[in-house]
Amino acid sequence: MDTLQTVFDLVLVLALLWLAWRVLAAADLFKGIVLFIAFGLLMALAWMRLRAPDIALAEAAVGSGITGALLLSGLARLRRLERSAQPHIGSEP
């Protein structure tokens, strides 16, 4: 029982750290944001494990949901601007 709990903790913590690294190392920003949403949902699981259900609810709704929507709409706006200024961006190395 105790061993099972420790294994769960270890897997969760390693998954969180690995996901955080992937979020920030991803070459594709869209992929990074989607991974960040997944990271937020795993964090909600960690909050439940740490006896903080209030924060798990807030993380799932705010930290993962609203932040994800904000970042995706920010990325969409960035792409629109890039498309309208393509020659300028294209000349860069």
């Binding site: 979020v23 920003l29 990074g32 990271f39 970042l71 920010g74």
Partner: peptide
């Protein structure tokens, strides 16, 4: 800058 924002969140 978007990566910096993601980094701040992490």
């Amino acid at each position: 800058l978007l990566r910096k924002i993601l980094a701040l969140n992490v």
